[in-house]
Amino acid sequence: MERAAGGVSYQRFPRVRIRELKDDYAKFELRDTDASMANALRRVMIAEVPTVAIDLVEIEVNSSVLNDEFIAHRLGLIPLTSAAAMAMRFSRDCDACDGDGSCEYCSVEFHLAARATDSDQTLEVTSNDLRSTDPKVCPVDQARAYQHALGGTEPFDTAAAADQRGILIVKLRRGQELRLRAIARKGIGKDHAKWSPAATVTFMYEPEIRINEELMETLTLEEKRNLVESSPTKVFNIDPNTQQVVVEDAEAYTYDDEVIKKADAMGKPGLIEINAKEDSFIFTVETTGAITAYELIMNAITVLRQKLDAVRLQDDDADLGELGAHLVGG
């Protein structure tokens, strides 16, 4: 794939079209721009959108089989609802608590107290057992269960029921106890993966598929069927009415060249031509639930704009320290 000639900077007017949008999933098209912009957006979504995660754990009692650091690590990885994260302060820059990170502007406190007492059953300590001092910041499973209790947006089904069990932290046998206090703070994924709101963010170049109709006419129906089946993913199909090979799902193509190899093996080179458009990108965004997919995208654009503003507004002799200005928050 040829790369666009570099060196020339030009103004772009990208277009976005949303194909799918759910709370934790989004699929959209980004057009009329180049790979640098698409990749920058991807990188910001992964590593620089702030969220809230547990950052300090004080364990009072822990008689479970997992040790303190183990449990602290698992608590840190629990995604917390972070819609308010953009407005929060980073603990290291908070002037209300002089940087120790324990005030209401830069942190949220959690408590957990669980004890297995009566039966031989194993008690499962989950994220539902975490009690937050701020109802806006709580484990994502708790928030989902709360929404469902209000008779909210989604109908009841078994998948939702399974989700309400919460994220398992530790299992306690009879007599074992876990009691702790945890402080959650604002952070970005560049510091630790627990602050990354993206389960994954990826894009692909939109394929441009062209079928040579004249060569296709020379194929028998069996040969057409073999050609369609040579692709591991379902890209092509046979139109039952016209018996012609048509593109069913161009974006299912994984650039594996299998169908092109098949055409070559049939003695028909050039039967299908597939190229990647260099100005069209198909984005797929999945979040951990800390923020919605829409918030993730919009926050990423905000962060990206802040970084661009920092570059644009700097004087010629100034350093690039302002690139981190968006990290101050406030």
Binding site: M1, S36, A38, N39, F203, M204, Y205, T254, Y255
Partner: peptide
């Protein structure tokens, strides 16, 4: 084998 994209530039690997 898979087609991977460079994380630094966003270009497909050759």
């Amino acid at each position: 084998k898979d087609l991977l994209y460079s994380g630094i530039l966003g270009h497909p690997c050759q």
